[in-house]
Design a protein around this nucleic acid. Structure first.
Length: 382
RNA sequence: GUGGGUGUGGCCUAGUUGGCUAAGGCGCCAGAUUGUGGCUCUGGAGAUCGAGGGUUCGAGUCCCUUCACCCACC
């Protein structure tokens, strides 16, 4: 397969099963990508990531730029070499992090100035161009354009201005991005407004068309950002299907920041290929387990003497080798192994869920698969 | 035995010269967590203030008796 080629292997309704080629190997879709902000999926070793069959791992530009510093990661040979993970990796641009720093930053048409409140309060300025340079030096296989994310609820005029800024920055990122072994994804914005979303898509497509005509690159995939920022789950689905339908068939669609099992499966159903989310690892560290019967709060007293497996239907290391009582004990004592075991299990759960979704698409039975999931008691819980 | 001190939810404490329904932390119980700075956030249960009696309109606060524990001295 040619680099950055997205092969749609099968389609079932709008749901797709595909394969994407990166410089560090192929991955199949739909895919859930574990988040490793600081070049580590918290608590999981490289060997652990391989055994979990994590196909793509995320890292974050903002955090690595602050620490250990872009130069250190570059000198290590790039983020994969630095963390000893040799599979496909993706860096988020850091736009979302700046958005969550919001009162500490100032955005203008040219770029964004911010105080690194999370670190040392130092002042920095990013432009789309400088952000591309940072991400090229970090060296992930897929990089995201610098964008701006708006919270919810927000005035439509605010969302519109921000959406426009994001596509203007997409154009500059596309022009500035040079590494041939690194894919660049544009990001669709527009909040919960379908017209703004479709306008965002139109501009991104016009931008890449102009680029290609001038001998430049196209976007190697599309992120869909600005959802899961506080709205009810159903709100996203009022527009998501139409947004996806407007995107090219031959590029992967990446719904950013979504990790709720039911939302994942519904999103696959409208044509999303890639996901990332901190939910499995963050909630895992805090004691929540995903399971075939729904969410489990492992702090609950009812597990004190429950010596059965976490999820009897699961084949992961946590479920085959440890008991609920032991996991509860670890979580209650804030022992680090508790967070590790639940993170591994939750990642396995979502990765496995995507495998099952993929099989259902390959069998052209996605609609039935999704209906069966939605009818299950577990679905009500997610 | 004598003198002094301390007793407030499971634990540690706050409670003005007596004055709303006895407050807080930990723990416990439950909920939350969505393009991550990792022990976070929200809610809940739980106390006849060691026991008994007295003064007072009113006592965790004052008085008496008693019990337990701690310290010092015989």
């Amino acid at each position: 397969m040619a680099l950055f080629e997205y092969e749609v292997e099968a389609q079932s309704g709008a749901a797709r099963a595909g394969r994407y080629a990166t410089a560090h190997g192929d991955f199949t879709t739909p895919v859930f990508m574990p988040v490793g902000t600081h070049a580590t999926v918290k608590g999981i070793t490289s060997a652990g990531l391989r055994s979990l069959d994590a196909q793509v791992v995320l890292a974050n530009t903002y955090h690595l730029y602050m620490r250990p510093g872009t130069d250190v990661v570059e000198e290590a040979g790039g983020v994969q070499a630095f963390m000893n993970y040799d599979g496909p990796m993706l860096t988020d641009s850091g736009g979302f992090q700046l958005f969550s720093l919001d009162h500490m930053m100032k955005t203008d048409a040219d770029g964004v100035s911010f105080h690194a409140r999370d670190y040392d309060g130092s002042k920095h300025r990013w432009t789309p161009e400088s952000n591309m340079e940072i991400q090229e030096r970090l060296g992930a296989d897929i990089v995201m354009q610098l964008d701006q994310c708006v919270g919810y609820p927000a005035e439509k005029s605010t969302v519109a201005a921000s959406t426009k800024l994001s596509w203007e920055w997409a154009e500059r990122c596309l022009a500035a991005h040079k590494r041939a072994d690194q894919a660049l994804f544009g990001i669709v914005q527009g909040g919960m407004h379908l017209d703004l979303r479709l306008e965002s898509v139109r501009h991104l497509l016009a931008i890449e068309q102009a680029s290609v005509e001038a001998g430049g690159r196209r976007f190697d995939g599309f992120g869909i950002g600005g959802y899961s920022v506080g709205e009810e789950h159903d709100v996203m689905f009022e527009t998501l299907g139409d947004v996806v339908a407007a995107l090219p068939q031959d590029r992967p669609r990446y719904l950013m920041g979504v990790g709720n099992p039911t939302t994942l499966l519904r999103a696959v159903g409208v044509g999303i290929d890639m996901f990332d989310c901190v939910l499995p690892t963050r909630t895992g560290r805090m004691g929540t387990a995903f399971s075939s019967t729904g969410r489990m709060n492992m702090r609950n007293a009812k597990y004190t003497r429950d010596f059965g497996p976490l999820d009897p239907e699961c084949t992961c290391e946590t479920c085959t080798q440890y008991t609920r009582a032991y996991i509860r004990h670890l979580v209650k004592q804030n022992e680090m192994l508790g967070g590790i075991l639940l993170s591994m299990h939750n990642l396995h759960f979502l990765i496995n869920l995507m495998k099952r979704a993929r099989e259902a698409v390959l069998a052209d039975a996605y609609e039935e698969f999704l209906a069966e999931w939605l009818a299950s008691p577990a679905a009500q819980d997610y």
